[in-house]
């Protein structure tokens, strides 16, 4: 085998991993070029939301279940870390892990009854959960600081290095985001991932081939809640301030819109969806009062014309058209072969 062919096969076999490393390289070099804090701040926000939305995309996009409550898990992560580190002085990293585990338990308790529901009912149940979380954050002032929020959350530190600038946090959050991305890419390329994609399209058929539908829905719900919780903890340590309004049902809706713009089930699309929705307010500053309307319009238009979401929808259109063309060509080729066999094109 030639060296070129070997390299080519290696590239093909490890294409997903190589793309992730390439992305890491690009992301690592961005701050070397763009040093202004405004851009870095936006990229940090994108990184935070990428972590949460990747989880939600596994649940909503890949496994086909709707959640309008993920800002609740995001908020529990943020406030969990905020209260325990700022008020009680717990060390940030172990706290983050502990909070994520606690959120996993909450998600399990919420998920067991609600994931028996479908469609609108599941949407309502998760929305209700988010609403309850928001009310607790607002009302329980002696712990959460009430509507005015909680400040003085310590910055994270890695090996004695305090993550106290936008640039340092940039490298931290994108490391987390790339790990999350890798975990998601791994999951969807496994039997468990195929099972999730199968149950999203047909629960009965999935169960017939050995997918434990009930268990798998709960597992991916819990996993996505953990992702949101970790994103929330990072958020709290980055801004050193949390406020209940960041974790309202409208944030949940924004997270869903990010999934839809990125495309249902598209792990790569998530990067696009989050970036687009996070940057949109900056591009359309003159329309500030109408953000909610614009978000709503985007959602409606995409769901009307590309129900699988923007990126996935476009990719599907291309995939299906290519497939149709190939099948058509195969059909006409077979016809030509038949004609040759029959001697129709043979000349004397």
């Amino acid at each position: 085998m030639s060296a070129f062919r070997k390299t080519w096969l290696f590239t093909l076999r490890h294409r997903t991993g190589l793309i992730v490393w390439l992305l890491a390289l690009v992301l690592a070099s961005i701050p070397l070029v763009l040093r202004n804090p405004y851009t870095l701040n936006n990229l940090n926000l994108i990184g935070l939301y990428v972590i949460a939305v990747l989880g939600l995309n596994l649940f909503t996009g890949y496994a086909g279940q709707i959640s309008l409550g993920h800002a609740g898990f995001f908020g529990l992560g943020a406030y969990g870390s905020a209260v325990l580190t700022a008020t009680y002085g717990w060390p940030p990293w172990p706290t983050m892990l502990l909070v994520a585990l606690a959120v996993a338990v909450v998600a399990l308790i919420i998920g067991m009854p609600t994931l028996r529901l479908h469609g609108h009912y599941l949407a309502m149940a998760t929305l209700g959960f988010n609403y309850v979380v928001h009310i607790i954050l607002v009302q329980w002032d002696e712990v959460t600081g009430g509507p005015s929020g909680l400040s003085g959350i310590p910055a994270l530190s890695v090996l004695g290095l305090s993550i106290d600038t936008d640039m340092k946090f940039y490298y931290l959050v994108w490391t987390f985001a790339l790990v999350a991305l890798t975990l998601c890419l791994n999951l969807v390329r496994s039997g468990v991932g195929r099972g999730l994609a199968a149950l999203a399209q047909d629960e009965v058929a999935a169960a017939t081939f050995g997918v434990n539908v009930k268990r798998d829905k709960i597992r991916v719900f819990v996993l996505s809640a953990c992702f949101a919780s970790v994103a929330g903890s990072l958020y709290a340590h980055y801004f050193s301030f949390v406020n209940p309004d960041t974790f309202s049902i409208f944030k949940s809706l924004d997270l869903v819109i990010m999934v839809v713009v990125g495309g249902l089930g598209s792990i790569w699309g998530t990067l696009f969806g989050v970036s687009f929705i996070t940057m949109l307010p900056h591009w359309l500053e003159f329309l500030e009062t109408y953000y909610d309307i614009i978000h709503g319009l985007i959602l409606v238009v995409i769901l009307l014309f590309l129900p699988q979401g923007f990126v996935t929808g476009l990719a599907d259109l291309i995939r299906i058209n290519l497939a149709r063309r190939r099948l058509r060509n195969a059909g006409s080729r077979r016809l030509e072969e038949d004609m040759v066999d029959a001697g129709a094109t043979r000349r004397p």
Binding site: N186, R194, A198
Partner: peptide, 16 residues
């Protein structure tokens, strides 16, 4: 491949 769900294993940690 969905016909081989059982054979593919169901450990989420292993998959992640």
């Amino acid at each position: 491949l969905t016909g081989l769900t059982i054979q593919a294993g169901s450990s989420m940690l292993e998959a992640l």
